[in-house]
Design a protein around this nucleic acid. Structure first.
Lengths: 363, 363
DNA sequence: CCATCGTATGAAAGCGGTTTACCAGCGTGT
DNA sequence: ACACGCTGGTAAACCGCTTTCATACGATGG
């Protein structure tokens, strides 16, 4: 019986639960139960086992555990890229919450390629993650919705939850959670901020039809204009993606094309704002002395360039996604119990020094 | 035999390899071998199996695979925080290389707390990651070295490789790989850059004794001064951590304490530079008109504030770590074959607009 | 035409846990 | 004293896959 734990303890093979059992003089089942925690056991046995674990430096094999038990104790997050600050913050939130719940976090990237996204979801499926969190801006067409519904069903069948983070809901009947933040509301608020400062001609940088995030932001911008009875000039909405270089390009082209016909800029996000600011500077224009500017996201570049912007609860987004998915998984009844399937997190304005009342601004 | 795959295909239990075998009319062994790829098989059987896989939407169970086979097909990375740009880039590199090699990437964070680091390493150990990559600046004392050696041995015993990324080597006999970049060289080069511009009194921001990264950077700074025969004034080395706020604080305090006694600043990293720049501005000083400044890292803030800095191959660091660890694992002989145990990646200067020759600078 | 050998496949033994029966004691209530 | 419910523990059946080991089958050589 104690054959294993015999003198030759320096064996190459890592310690298993059987070794622990032998060493402690109990059965493997007892060890398993004591380690899992959830079971009554005599204090004496408990301490015997714990001592054996310590002495043998035993660590459970997660694969075996995941195979035998129901749960793999892991959550998956899939993002475009880990270096992009927004994704990084969401990922941080996911990781933190996962750690808090004793799960580990596995991450995949797509580079924005939907083929890779598909492959990555498959990967997570075979990993049996308890939930897979898909985050990021995306084309919102029929094909997309269908694909997501497919993912959601396949994952549900494997006992795992699909969470869409920062994406719009798919519609009823699809077993997917949605956690997003109020893009339209934020855009409305910050546009109003500019309008209150007297600005009427506000350049919107980063329109991109068909993509959910920029679309919602443009929508907020337009609604604010409308509510303030400021005529809407579609010519002020410049198309471009959400990158720094694009911000640079858009402003540069605009200024090269003719005389300046705006007094303020609403950059689709802070990256665009940073690029735009550089283009302005190269053109001899200062923010906010000559042009007012606001952004969206409140990510690192914003503080560096003193940008008034919309704060987005990036980390909270990730945290909530995990909490929700795990909560729902735990309590299957949650579904019937009407646990939230769609959460909308709020945003708020961060005022820095990038906006000046129109009257105080150089012409 | 075909009991499983009988009409009622809508069973709740996910598809297993047995289902596929039954559906294709072969044995599970055959399916396993064909899916693993590495084995000869008759084309006819192969296509039968593949069809079954497709029709049943089969995905292998990674836990079972990891348990039965040797490898878990995963690499682990442990960082302070995912949002910190340096770590994010390294993580991106790790993730990318892992994906390239068909492995998945699991990430843990420590928040800089060594207790959490320990716990996280344990977590990765039980996950049986093929390698665990520890990245980040750290106190380099005896206790640390001992702890790392412990980690390395425990991991090696479980068939996994410890990789220290951006940390100095531990010494011989410890089964750990090291991938770092040339901090001292970079600091030397960029200090020389300032010296060539005529600067003699260069403030170093972010000295922190006992921590490897800042220590190496200070070392390069000092060596450059020495080589250029510029007297070294210890009073010019300001202590602080590698954060934006710290940069702000350090400069603010310095300027409040007395008249400006420097003409250039070498910020320990770009974050510090950003903070320092803000403090300077609030004090009415412009970069580079009044003060020259350089940073280190070449991370996002650098471009935004037009900072001349040292480019660090962050992603390459992560990539190399994975490549090395996996390469070594695959070919156990690699150890004897003298495969690199310590890689030092080079850096180079990125010149932007933050340095002005002393003579052209305001007094 | 039989012995020989290489090859594609099958049967079964684990991998290291969890979990379901099941059982030995051991007070209690009557 | 006996049936009875508890408690702390055991044995053994999986979980789904990989991987020997063994085998049937064709092709080959003498």
């Amino acid at each position: 019986m104690a054959r294993r734990a015999a003198s030759g303890d320096e064996g190459r093979r890592p310690t298993t639960i059987r070794d622990v059992a032998a060493h402690a003089g109990v059965s493997v089942a007892t060890v398993s139960r004591i380690l899992s925690g959830t079971y009554p056991s005599a204090p004496a046995t408990r301490s015997k086992v714990m001592r054996a674990v310590r002495e043998l430096d035993y660590v459970a094999n997660a694969n075996a555990r995941g195979l035998a038990g129901a749960s793999s104790r892991s959550v998956a997050i899939i993002v475009n890229s880990v270096v992009s600050p927004h994704y990084a913050h969401v990922a941080q939130g996911v990781q933190a919450q996962a750690a808090l719940e004793g799960k580990l976090c596995i991450v995949g990237t797509t580079g924005g390629d939907s083929e890779r996204e598909l492959a990555t979801v498959q990967l997570m499926r075979q990993e049996h993650a308890e939930c897979v969190i898909l985050v990021g801006n995306v084309v919102n067409d029929e094909a997309y919705r269908e694909r997501m519904a497919e993912y959601a069903r396949a994952l549900a069948l494997a006992g795992s939850q699909l969470v869409l983070c920062g994406r719009p809901p798919l519609g009823p009947g699809v077993p997917a959670l949605v956690v997003e933040y109020d893009n339209t509301g934020g855009a409305y608020a910050i546009t109003s901020h500019l309008l209150s400062a007297g600005h009427r001609r506000i350049l919107f940088l980063g329109r991109r039809d068909g993509y959910t995030t920029p679309e919602s932001r443009v929508a907020g911008y337009r609604k604010a204009l409308a509510d303030h009875r400021v005529p809407h000039d579609p010519g002020l909405e410049v198309e471009g993606t959400m990158e720094r270089l694009e911000g640079y390009r858009m402003v540069r082209q605009r200024l090269a094309a003719g005389p300046r016909d705006f007094t303020a800029i609403f950059a689709g996000n802070d990256l665009i704002a940073a690029g735009a600011r550089q283009a302005l500077r190269e053109h001899g224009l200062r923010v906010p002395d000559d042009v007012s500017m606001v952004g969206f996201d409140d990510l690192p570049p914003a503080a560096d360039i003193d940008l008034t912007t919309v704060h987005v609860p990036h980390e909270e987004l990730g945290r909530t996604a995990v909490r929700l998915a795990l909560g729902r998984g735990q309590d299957q009844a949650g579904i019937q119990a009407g646990m939230a399937e769609h959460v909308l997190l709020g945003t708020h304005i961060i005022v820095r020094d990038s906006v000046r009342p129109l009257r105080n601004q150089a012409p």
